[in-house]
Simulated scan of single mutants.
Amino acid sequence: MTDVSDSRVSLNETAYRQLRGDIIACRLAPGQRLTEKQLAADMGFSVAPLRDALIRLDHEGLIRTLPRKGYQVTPLTPKSIDDLFGVWGLVGPELIRLGLRQASQAQLDAAREAFDGLDALSQEQGGSPSVLLDIDVVNRTFEVLAEATGNTYLINFFQQLMGDMSRIRALLLTSDRTSAATGLADHWVRHILDEQDVDKAAEHARRYIEDVHQHVLRVIIRWPSVMSSEVSVLPPR
C-alpha cells in the first residue's frame, strides 16, 4: 500500500515539475489554452497527475482555471510586466541588502558554487547552458538571500514573484541574442555576491533592475506571445 502511495506522489511531482518547467521556459506560451486531454496526449501522463499539477500551478499563479473551458497559462501583458518590474525594483534591492547582511558564509559559498557549476557546464557544452539552468541558478541564489533574511513575508513574496520573473527572463534570453550571449562570469547576480558593501550591492541591483525594466519594455513588441495575451478585467465586487 505504501509503495502505491509513494508511486503516485512521485508521478504527481514529475508531472508538476515537467509542466512547470514548460511554463517557465515559455515552451507553453503566456496566454496559451490547455486541456487535460491535450496535455495527457502531449506529455504522456494520465489525467490524474496532470490535474494535480494544474491545481498546484493555479495556486502559484502560473495557470488560470477557466470554468468549463479548461486552463490557460497565465498571460503576461505589457502592463503586468511593467507592474512586476515596478514591484521587483522596490523589493529586490532590499532583499539583497538584508540577505547579504545576514547570510552565512556557507550560504554565500553555495550560491557562488552554483554559478561556478553553470560556468563549467557551459565550457563542457561549448556554449551557453539551457535557459532553464540559467534561471534555476539565479532563482536559487535569490532563494538563499531571501531565506537568509529570516523574514517570512519577504520569503513568501519573493516566491510569488519568482514564476513570472522567470518567464520574463526566459523570453528575454530566447528572443534577445545580446542577453543570451552575456558571459556567466560577468553575471550581475554573481557580482553582488562578491560585493563587500551591502549598500553598494543593493544600489547596483536597483540600477540593473531598472535598466532591464527599460530594456524589456523596448523589446516587448517583438514578443507575440505577450502582446497577443488576453487582458481580463475582473468585475467589481
Rank of each mutant, 00 (worst) to 15 (best):
M1T: 09
D3T: 15
D6W: 01
D6C: 07
R8S: 14
V9G: 04
V9K: 09
N12H: 12
N12C: 13
E13Q: 14
T14C: 10
T14I: 08
A15K: 04
A15R: 05
A15Q: 02
Q18C: 06
L19D: 00
L19T: 05
I23Q: 00
I24P: 00
C26T: 13
C26Y: 01
L28P: 03
A29D: 05
Q32D: 07
R33S: 14
E36I: 13
E36N: 09
E36R: 13
A40T: 06
A41L: 13
F45A: 01
V47W: 07
P49M: 01
P49W: 00
P49V: 02
A53I: 06
R56L: 08
D58Q: 10
R64Y: 08
T65V: 15
P67W: 04
Q72G: 05
P75E: 04
T77G: 05
T77W: 00
S80V: 03
D82E: 15
D82Q: 11
L84P: 02
L84I: 09
V87N: 11
V87P: 03
E94T: 10
R97F: 08
R97I: 06
G99S: 09
A103L: 01
A103S: 08
A103G: 07
Q105G: 15
A110I: 04
A110H: 08
A114I: 03
A120S: 15
A120N: 12
L121T: 11
Q125S: 10
Q125I: 07
G127K: 07
G127E: 09
L132S: 09
D136P: 00
V137N: 02
V137K: 01
N139M: 04
R140E: 12
F142Y: 12
F142D: 01
F142N: 04
F142C: 01
E143W: 05
L145F: 07
A146W: 04
A146F: 03
N151G: 11
N151K: 07
Y153Q: 13
Y153F: 13
I155V: 14
Q160F: 07
L161P: 00
L161Q: 05
L161S: 05
L161Y: 02
M162A: 14
D164C: 06
M165C: 11
S166N: 13
S166Y: 09
S166G: 11
S166D: 12
R167E: 10
R169Y: 03
A170Q: 09
L172Y: 06
L172T: 14
L173K: 00
S175N: 13
S175P: 03
T178Y: 01
S179W: 12
A180S: 11
A180T: 08
W188A: 13
D194H: 14
E195N: 01
D197G: 09
K200W: 10
A201R: 01
E203H: 06
A205E: 13
Y208F: 15
Y208G: 02
E210R: 10
E210Y: 04
D211Q: 12
V212Y: 03
Q214E: 10
H215F: 09
V216M: 04
V216Y: 00
V216S: 02
R218A: 10
V219H: 09
W223D: 03
S225K: 07
M227P: 06
M227R: 10
S228Y: 12
S229A: 12
S232D: 14
V233S: 15
L234P: 05
L234M: 11
